[in-house]
Design a protein around this nucleic acid. Structure first.
Lengths: 152, 152
DNA sequence: TGACAGAATCTGCCTAGGCAGATATAGTCT
DNA sequence: AGACTATATCTGCCTAGGCAGATTCTGTCA
């Protein structure tokens, strides 16, 4: 007993966890980018696109809060999407300071395809995971998030 | 049996995995940033600092490859560290195109403290993990990476 | 030696996001 | 209504990283 081999928590604590998580994040991002390239949609744009299409948020401020974006960044992200014709800003009758964000007819028609592509990417990224492993993975990620939140 | 509840793989595939991983990455980053603020070192700078101090890489190009950085970005990251006195560029006698990167005496003396702080952050982020859970978590991250690599 | 492909670093340019401040509108309280 | 605070969005400025091209040096091969 009592070998010199470090346990996994020690290993991950040297910075390996940060490295792994960063690498996973950019792998996910790159995979989605490649998959959506034919549709001319960036990963960031898809996240908003998805949110709008699913009715999760209607105004710019809501998307900022839901997606953890700065309001200036969101303004410009939507500018780019609007220029491409993916979305439009519509006056909000309930609050003249804000806009309601709507999909264009074309982008609404395109959404299912984009969505299927993204789901396919995640399924491939989760290849080899049993449902039990996926559940444990999800809980681990949530646990780290909760620990970080409690540090603040 | 056969309820309408989706399994975890389905849930994660809707984009939840990307969201979680991004959130975890920025939580880690923010925690390290806060912890190293008193030492005036950014998370990105620490990653290089750590690499140099542990002898993992000696030239700019090696750090680029090890850390997945663009060479222009690394040049400027090192510029900032050099301006702060953390590192210096020394002529490489074996290859006059490149520099050897060395820690200054002050930063070498400061390294253990920075390192301890970062390790403490990761230990807190992994609070509540058994070693077995940590091992499974690490393997899941590596599995996703491997899956992404095999898609290219 | 001379030509030349390849590598190491740096620089300029571009994109994207964060932050701070500006503007317009809402909501509240008197 | 008037004053005041809060909120929604936008704009300007800054930082940081990616990419492409320039420069300098290395290694190879004729």
């Amino acid at each position: 007993m009592s070998t010199s081999r470090k346990n996994t928590i020690d290993t991950l604590s040297t910075g390996e966890l940060g490295f792994l998580v960063s690498a996973v994040r950019s792998s996910i991002w790159d995979s989605i980018e490649a998959e959506l390239k034919p549709l001319d949609i960036s990963p960031a744009q898809f996240v908003v696109f998805n949110s709008i299409a699913l009715g999760k948020g209607r105004t710019i401020g809501e998307f900022c809060r839901l997606l953890g974006y700065d309001s200036g960044a969101m303004t410009r992200l939507l500018d780019r999407m609007e220029k491409k014709g993916l979305i439009r800003r519509v006056a909000n009758p309930e609050d003249r300071r804000s806009y309601l964000i709507e999909l264009s007819d074309e982008s609404r028609a395109m959404f299912p395809q984009a969505r299927r592509r993204v789901e396919a990417v995640f399924r491939r990224l989760l290849g080899g995971f049993s449902n039990v492993q996926a559940e444990a993975f999800k809980r681990s990620l949530e646990q780290v998030l909760a620990n970080a939140a409690s540090m603040r």
